[in-house]
Nucleic acid binder design. Structure first.
Lengths: 217, 217
DNA sequence: TTCCATTTGTTCGTATGTATG
DNA sequence: CCATACATACGAACAAATGGA
């Protein structure tokens, strides 16, 4: 039915641009190349470029300003929907949403993780384990690890949601670590290893519990 | 700010066509005039007509078939959402995300609901309670009720996430009710009343458990 | 402030490809 | 096979908004 054997040029451009945005190649607020430049770059007419841009504007990923340029305003569709809300969401709300989502994701991951997921998680876990890291670096690696768990949950909606707020998580986790004078690198790593083991053992309840401990650490 | 002093031709055409559709002048399944005819009728180019049609197709009001014609498939945007079909895989993911989010929201609502929230929930609960409702109507009221619970959770992020997927929930809930031959209106309402009571009593664990029962009903 | 180059917005005309009945 | 109708793509022109000189 909806199987166009040949993907339209504008669709191809949409895919290329989406990739740039989602991989962070073009972070939020980036001013993307002008229509004329994209026309040259993709070797298509301006109309075709505009059609692709229209799709992304419609999806809420881009915003264009006449006489100025076109800007990235969201990294994915969920973020596009929550674009307005997140900015004014307060700290407590983000922290609360984070804990709930991480519990949900750990629960799902324990049920659905594959061997490949375990490998990816282990790599991220290892990267996280460097006592020489500053708190800043640790916070970043921490988010990476939790995103791997989110991927292991095999639910693209929940993954999107988590990735959307992960932008805001950095500051949150960083502050959390910094304010907690009792924060201990090894203890933290130990808890994350336990979480990995629980997911590996497919113990969803335990995984959920451990996330609770990590968040309220 | 967003005050274009001159409405574009395609926008004007969108408005004209929308009027035809919403007033019932062009009922559902009507085959609308061809692009060539609309071109003549509005005295604009075919491109401009197509741009307008694209908007309405995107909005879900129209559907076009190459070599055949363009048809009205929904009378308004809300109805258009109902026709929004989802892939089988997405369907499962949405169902999963729905259950998790509703549990989270009920949990939070039980902890943070105010007296005003209870009143709003009670109103939505009462609206839901009409044995004469078709399953379609019931599904709509059901979503309304759960959105009230989401509001009572007092977390704008979680509310936003839930509202984002609620667009897709209608079809899901509707199918769920329809496929379940044991579905009983009174039993369902009873469970929803129990959920209300649990939130009123601030029993977050019980609220979460009841949502689990409702989802797996 | 005005003016101007840049960039997006709108519209047209045309050509060719693809799907339907 | 064929006429019809939508799908895709190109090129061109001018309007309107913006930001900076």
């Amino acid at each position: 039915m909806k199987k166009p054997r040949r993907v339209s040029l504008s669709t191809q451009i949409v895919q290329e641009l989406t990739k740039k945005i989602e991989t962070g190649d073009w972070p939020i607020q980036t001013k993307i190349p002008t229509e004329a430049q994209l026309t040259e770059q993709f070797e298509v007419s301006r109309n075709t470029v505009r059609e692709a841009l229209q799709s992304l504007i419609q999806a809420g990923l881009l915003e264009s300003k006449a006489g100025d340029g076109t800007y990235v305003i969201a990294a994915n569709k969920f973020e596009a929907n929550m674009y307005h809300e997140l900015g004014k969401a307060d700290y407590q709300e983000i922290a609360e949403a984070r804990q709930l989502l991480e519990k949900n994701l750990a629960f799902l991951a324990a049920k659905k993780r594959t061997e490949e997921d375990l490998i990816a998680m282990e790599v991220a876990l290892e990267r996280r384990n460097n006592p020489a890291f500053t708190l800043e670096e640790l916070a970043l690696k921490d988010i990476d690890y939790h995103i791997e768990i989110a991927k292991a949950a095999h639910n693209s909606i929940m993954l999107d949601v988590y990735q959307s707020i992960s932008t805001y998580l950095f500051q949150l986790i960083f502050d959390h670590m910094q304010q907690d004078v009792t924060f201990n690198h090894d203890d933290s790593q130990q808890l994350h290893i336990e979480l990995f083991d629980a997911i590996k053992a497919r113990d969803s309840k335990l995984a959920e519990t451990i996330v609770g401990k990590i968040s309220s650490y």
